[in-house]
Design a protein around this nucleic acid. Sequence first.
DNA 1: GCACGGGGTTGACGTGGATCAAACGTGGGG
DNA 2: CCCCACGTTTGATCCACGTCAACCCCGTGC
Lengths: 248, 248
Amino acid sequence: MPTNVAAARLALEGVKAACSNCNLRELCLPIGIEPEDLRKIDELVSTRRRLKRGDYLYRAGQGFESIYAIRSGFFKTDVLIEDGRDQVTGFQMTGELLGLDGISSEVHSCNAIALEDSEVCAIPFSQLEGLSRQIHTLQHHFHKVMSREIVRDHGVMMLLGTMRAEERLAAFLLNLSQRFKARGYSPAEFNLRMSRDEIGSYLGLKLETVSRAFSRFQEEGLLAVHQRRVRILNTAGLRKLMTHHRGS
Amino acid sequence: MPTNVAAARLALEGVKAACSNCNLRELCLPIGIEPEDLRKIDELVSTRRRLKRGDYLYRAGQGFESIYAIRSGFFKTDVLIEDGRDQVTGFQMTGELLGLDGISSEVHSCNAIALEDSEVCAIPFSQLEGLSRQIHTLQHHFHKVMSREIVRDHGVMMLLGTMRAEERLAAFLLNLSQRFKARGYSPAEFNLRMSRDEIGSYLGLKLETVSRAFSRFQEEGLLAVHQRRVRILNTAGLRKLMTHHRGS
DNA sequence: GCACGGGGTTGACGTGGATCAAACGTGGGG
DNA sequence: CCCCACGTTTGATCCACGTCAACCCCGTGC
């Protein structure tokens, strides 16, 4: 892209986000919205925010007033308890929403941290509620998004409660793969934005165990790993690992 | 209660649920609702359903059209995967909502099973969406309830991902205790509606491990257990167990 | 070039909880 | 009343993963 065009776009950012010509529309907005309604939504999503790798989008304990749609980049959310233990509760990528945890008590209950340079659209929540009273499809879409988060969490609970280490990692990689695919990237080759330690925290494992599982998958020809670069060689094999392993 | 009165009430049930004089109002509805709005809500929650112990309220795969408010009784929700493994994702008691998982895909993603004879109010979801477009406080309350479910799930993920067996059981018992207390029952003495096996499934443990943890708590004077009857003797001790145990 | 540091890998060993197995209430039915 | 079935307790053993520690790889700065 020529630099003058990039500069022109940069000047606009922070002023106008323009859902109407955002290429993520299908991911974070309902399809089939009337042009007129889309204009209203444009007004709703008025501010963007850029974050560098390592920046906090919000912290546990901070007051809640907006949810965020990820325009580009990669995030993790984590919760921590007094004694220092923490748990990564999710990884979020382009087109996904962050901040839903804050609605219940007007205060964020987890930290959201950028794992690479990222850009988000801030959506003031009270305005979202207002608009979703007018636009049925927006309301319903939002309810679906919240519900999907609940279902996703149940999947993670299943993973943490019943799966063994290699199954967990396989499930994790297949999930990532499928999400990359949905965004038009290769489902077979991608690089991880998170460390072994962060994967371990998410999966309820220690980083050494994660590392060993990676090595084992590589030995068995299921995938090729080099640092954070992953190339899936045998999707079916990974999938079989997930279900076929134990009787109990 | 005289039997003729009971019979009269029975006749009404299934026809009219009447939130306006339901003693759970503060739990499942926002406070401070206008009388006029309350009347509309009464119309919304028009059908009740009685379930016996062991009955399914809904099953994974069934079409979704209502959420349910528990009027009395006790439920569990669980998900299961092909190979036979399953995981209890939650226990729900009076005043709590069931069915939020179904919104995302119009199909229930888990089973909801009564652990004792129970009674629920069915709330047709499309009507709830319609009414929450009219009543701001109802809309906001509903969003809070969904968000609270997400936060709760994150807590369970934390539990499954980082806690050891005794911490998990302590956290579980303290959570139950606090919920009984919120409903006006004794926080110190109650009986469990679920088996050791179901507790284990929820906590990611085997029933033997749950049983041993109970025995250990009893040895240490933290509680008295007899079958499903639990009496908490040392709340502070249980709470300390939860955080103070490990460094990692 | 070399030293440094942080993430990642690998090995040896320890342990918490799973597994297997047996015995023990307790409550319901004949 | 006894018997049976099922949930629970308890013990003995096993094993997957955690822990501890050494080493490696690769990028960065001097």
